[in-house]
Structure formats: structure tokens, C-alpha cells
Design a protein around this nucleic acid. Structure first.
Ligand SMILES: [Zn+2]
Ligand SMILES: [Zn+2]
Ligand SMILES: [Zn+2]
Ligand SMILES: [Zn+2]
Lengths: 149, 149
DNA sequence: CAGAAAGTGTGATAATATAACATAGCACGT
DNA sequence: ACGTGCTATGTTATATTATCACACTTTCTG
């Protein structure tokens, strides 16, 4: 399973998210904040409909658009990432570091490591202007690689 | 639009696919072959349900599983790739060159360039064993970049 | 030929995501 | 405070993408 953040680092990540939004005049509303909490507390990538379930207990009986809107906001703010090949989402532990993100996803335990600010892929076709890159690596994390060796 | 292959290069790619399958004892059945043709003839990534439409004219009134099975086969054979961030598929112009694939997808005209042969193993986390990588770059191809400059 | 394995057909359904429109809350100039 | 517009949310319905389960056929193999 993904290494769950300690309660401490979870709340400090949330605090940083709050500050980031305040600084930019973005609104980290209750729904958005709750979705971010669910993402950060999870022990791996989370499916949109699981977030939906996660919101049920609270006051807002959320419907799909609610969750997808919150995810759109969080991704635009750089506070969450989509794992394209899994149709799942993760909270960004780095709270919106700049630059592209590179993900290492363990197929065995579900842990995800993020690397921000990856170097440009260098040999793009001549004249090509890259706006955004999706880079996801699948395999076994160091712990799982040792066990299955 | 994606640079459509000339009829010539399309049939030579198909011929190479046939040979590859023959060599490995894989069965490029009519359905599979037809799906590959549709992919190669398309001028960009193709959605599964568009392939379904494309199969309608023929004898097999295909249902979704038919198409997804054919795609699974083609991808395992290295004859097609999935564009994860678009939920779409492309025929491999290189007919199963080995190694990972890196895609350059023009958001303006839909053209796709493939690069085979692992680009850069990069600096994976220590101990990490990568099985498969998804690398997709979105932006503007050289032609479209010039126009929108 | 029998039996097994691989491929396909078919109907149903699951899982993921968006459209369209109504309502509510907040910002901002007056 | 008031009206006005903008942003966010609620709600219903639907679109899009993908798989399951089971029957049937074809192909391979002994
Ligand atoms: Zn991140
Ligand atoms: Zn692991
Ligand atoms: Zn290829
Ligand atoms: Zn282009």
C-alpha cells in the first residue's frame, strides 16, 4: 500500500495548500478541501467514485460532477494529479511544486512516488512545442522488488 | 490531422505485421487484421467505439468485446498502442519494434509521432524496477507550431 | 475422432465522465 | 443595503469507455 502520510505531514500539506490558494486568490472551498484530504489520506491512487463514497458521510451528498469539479480545480492548482493509465487521482504531496510531474507507481503495493521538475525530454521531434507531458512508470517499488526477487 | 500513411506504406506495414505474427505463431485473424487496418488508415488516435463503427460495414456486426479483444491482442503483439490520456488507440507504424514507446501528440491537428527504444531510464527511485512506462507529450507539431507562432 | 484450447458472438452491465440547467453564495460598484 | 454579475454548487440525466458471463465455433493435438 502507498505509504500513508503521518497525520502531521497531512495537516502540514493541507496548510501549505491553504496558503498557496490564499496567495493566488483561489478558493479552497469545503468540498475541494475535503476531496484533497481524502486524496492525501489515501494509501494510493483514488478513483473518482471512491471519492464520491468518501464524501457521503458528510453534509454534501455529492454527485459525480461535484467530485470531478473539485478534481479539476485541484489539478489546475497543482494540488492533485491524475494517474492517466489508472483513471485515478492522487494528492500532490509537494503542494504545487512547479514543473511537470513524473510518477512511479508500484503495481504490487500501490505506492506512488512523485518527482517534480523532470528535465525536458530532450530529443523531441524538431520544431515540436511540448505543452504538457504524461510520464508514468509502472513496476515494483524497492520494498516490493526485494520481496519478489 | 495525423499524417495519413500512403496506401503503399499501409500495406507494407500490414505485410510486416503478418510476417511478425507468422514468425511467432500468433494469429492475425480477420477481425484483428481489420482493426489494425482501421488504426493504420486513420489520421490520428481512434476511439474504441469508432473502431466498432468502422467494423459495422463488414460481415461482423461487432460488439464492444470484439474490439477490445482485438486491441488487447494488437497491443500485446506490439502492433498498436493505447494513448492513455485520450482513451484512444493507434496502430504502430514501426510494427512492433522493441522497447518502450514515447508519443508526441499534436493537440491542434491530432498527428502522432512515435519514438521507440527507451528514451532515458531516467533516475528512478533507488531499488525501483520499472516494468512499463507511459510517456505521452502533448503540444503542437512543427507544422502547427509555426502557424500559431 | 475425441478432447482441449483459443477465438468469437451476444446480451447485459460496470465504471468513468460530462451536459444541461437550476440554485445559492459572494464580490463589487453604487 | 441594493442590484448585478460571477463563481461555485446542486441535481437530473446521459454520454463514453470497458468488462463480465456464457454460448458457440473453430483450430489445434493426440
Ligand atoms: Zn505533485
Ligand atoms: Zn510496492
Ligand atoms: Zn509503435
Ligand atoms: Zn499539428
Amino acid at each position: 500500500m502507498r505509504n500513508m502520510q503521518s497525520s502531521d505531514s497531512l495537516s502540514s500539506t493541507l496548510a501549505r495548500a491553504e496558503k498557496l490558494c490564499a496567495r493566488h486568490g483561489w478558493k479552497l472551498t469545503p468540498v475541494r478541501r475535503r476531496v484533497l484530504e481524502l486524496l492525501l489520506a489515501a494509501d494510493g491512487p483514488v478513483k473518482a467514485y471512491d471519492l464520491l463514497e468518501g464524501l457521503k458521510p458528510g453534509p454534501g451528498a455529492a454527485k459525480p460532477p461535484t467530485v470531478y469539479r473539485a478534481l479539476d480545480f485541484l489539478m489546475q492548482a497543482g494540488l492533485a494529479h491524475k494517474v492517466e493509465a489508472l483513471n485515478a487521482y492522487i494528492g500532490c504531496v509537494h503542494a504545487a511544486e512547479t514543473g511537470g510531474v513524473e510518477l512511479y507507481i508500484c503495481a504490487n503495493c500501490g505506492s506512488v512516488e512523485e518527482r517534480h521538475g523532470a528535465p525536458a525530454p530532450a530529443k523531441a521531434p524538431a520544431g515540436w512545442a511540448i505543452d504538457r507531458s504524461v510520464v508514468e512508470h509502472y513496476g515494483r517499488c524497492s520494498a516490493c522488488a526485494r520481496l519478489s526477487a
